[in-house]
Nucleic acid binder design. Structure first.
Lengths: 222, 222, 222, 222
DNA sequence: TATGAATGAGGATTCATTCAT
DNA sequence: TATGAATGAATCCTCATTCAT
């Protein structure tokens, strides 16, 4: 239908394949800012620079867009961590430190950190989204951490613990840090400093895991 | 169709004093189940066994009811913990254990545990509610834990840590447990067992805090 | 349940026959202040110092109360004027002056002056009230003025005019003065001064009615 | 029941520019008929042939629509009169006659005549609308008449009067005529005949204003 | 593909009215 | 007679969704 010979040489073609990403980016902003229910598609369209009708060319409905926002911003995060775990050759404590600080830089300090709050808030209304997030994010993050714990234990660096439950406990402060930034951060009299929080977290976690008598053995650095 | 000889039975019976509590209880159920935006006042009224108009005899509007639900279910919880901290005479590790298990019994395992998720989810929409929750709940809980850490450190039982940040870290797994039960719990293949989770948590926390060389002194007096 | 023998001799019995008047007085205030639709019976009851239910002991419903307010405050006004017309023995111009000034003192400057606006505003919604007001107030007022005009013409003091239409015209400025005070009065930069307005009105009216060549003949004063 | 083969016929046809006017026209009808509070937006929409939601594309809310009705129907009226005053070259009495009859034809006899009643009725509830009407309509109308009286006095045709108050008095019968048609007109046994009313009005007004000894000078130049 | 005017179901809120006490 | 808690119909307004262009 579009005349194939129209526009002889557009200097740049309107990147129509970029549209969904632009919409998702706009929607991420607004969902994170206002929550699912309070975000109007009018505003999403306006921020994406398209008309409201255009949203429906790419997404079935609001719910579908919401899910795309979550799915689209969540998966890239994990790969990085999983690669690190697989290839890291230093001590397990260093691996933990590197994972945590990497997460903070890549995700925790960005607006993507708003997604856990979103998913938590809407888990009841969108069970399949929660399921997706659980399977694709939480499970994988837990597995990754589980592996790290086992790696440390196998090397005699970490003590033996109830790994299955400990990974939940160990991840909780990270999730809470992300959630905090989008809930109570603005209520604080003295702002929580994420870097110090993470130091305290690593301090607690590694103290807790280290073999009672052991000093952290410096492995051969990578 | 309506049985004509049915007992006319009064359209309402007067129970003025009980009403607000009944309404708040019904609203707690529904807000926890569905979230703020998805809860219809019609349903709250129906579950409370009153008419829609009756809600407005006791609450200004939906927001006011929401706040009453939070306020009414949250404050009683803390007093118990604060009393315990003040009067406990055993070791600080035991105090931590007692606090954590007490919290679980009184709150974590009840539907009141749904409130943190609610408040987190709606913090952006109701900043003053978030402020209230921060000031009246979070601050007090942090202070309580701060005191416990200092008590343990003063007694030589706990090592010195960055208390201000550590309390945040230390509370996070408890909050997450409550949140978990109202978000991802239903997605799990194998259910998280709260009791084991709490054991792992206490294990981690106390391992982390205990002086490296110290044995836990039983019944150290303050 | 209330002890029936309580209050052996009330020093004064609660004047229950005064109730309807108190309610009507309260309702007049509020209807005049806010209009019919915006007046809540809650407020009427509160101002009358009774409960909402009590209103329904004396009045069928809101409409009935409204009508009682109008009827109860409107009839006493006319009798005074009609008596004056019947018994006045001075010049017709003086009679006009006396009627107009009397009206202003007894009605125009009181809150009863709010009633014409009320009736006008609600005439469409309460046709039978409008009918009542037309029959009992407007018709009688027109007749009264008609009689004055005829009296003046019969005495050679006023010129002959289309009396039936002229009375409408002649009364309009008085009605408007009453209406003005409850509509645009509060918008004015410089307040309309009713006394001057009435002087101008009488000036116009009497100039217009006086026989072209005639000086106002001073009749025998009463 | 719905003919299955009926032409699907578009749910709406696009007429963006016409819509606001159509809605305002429908709203004028209903507001004049029933008053502000008794007019349901459902009905306005139905009469305008649009859906309820469409109203909100063009007007913020009911109040905004109400104001648009008043503003949109009232301003054009005045311009005509002001032009006439500025350009008329006949006697001032003729100018008055022309103004009054022009007003009747253009406004008084149309449904726009319902607006004064509306504004009067709702002045208390919408003070800023009353202010607008006072500033944009009443003030201008008073100024216009003031100028006419001064024009006549300057030409020796009208006697000197308290102009500021007289203009209020002089306009009152016209306003009342408009109000009458939307309040008591339907209660009358014998209908008031506007043309005769206006004759009586002009008769009274001009008799009152004319210099006692003066004949009306035909075509006196200003 | 893209638009944006139009839709209408859905829900919060109000308040006249009722009636057991 | 008097109360006031309870009712529920009525209505404004929102916003996700549709579809002719």
């Amino acid at each position: 239908m579009n005349a194939p010979d129209k526009k002889p040489q557009p200097r740049w073609t309107r990147r129509k394949e970029a549209r969904p990403e632009e919409i998702i980016a706009a929607a991420l902003d607004l969902f994170v800012e206002r929550g699912y229910a309070s975000t109007r598609l009018d505003d999403v369209a306006a921020r994406a620079g398209v008309s409201k009708g255009t949203l429906y060319l790419y997404f079935e409905n609001k719910e579908d867009l919401f899910k795309a926002v979550v799915r689209g911003n969540v998966l890239p995060v994990l790969q990085h961590g999983e690669n690190l775990v697989e290839t890291f050759s230093g001590s397990s404590a260093d691996l933990v430190r590197k994972l945590v600080r990497g997460w903070w830089e890549l995700t925790g300090s960005t607006k993507i950190a708003g997604i856990p709050k979103l998913v938590i808030a809407e888990a009841g209304n969108f069970p399949d989204l929660a399921k997706f997030y659980y399977d694709e994010v939480i499970e994988r993050a837990l597995s990754m951490f589980r592996e790290v714990l086992q790696r440390g234990a196998a090397a005699g660096e970490f003590r033996k613990v109830d790994v299955d439950h400990m990974v939940h406990v160990a991840l909780a402060p990270l999730v809470m840090l992300a959630v905090w930034g989008h809930s109570f951060a603005c209520c604080e009299h003295e702002k929580l400093q994420p870097e110090h929080y993470l130091e305290a977290y690593l301090d607690m976690l590694l103290h807790s895991l280290r073999m009672p008598q052991a000093q952290e053995k410096k492995h051969a650095r990578k």
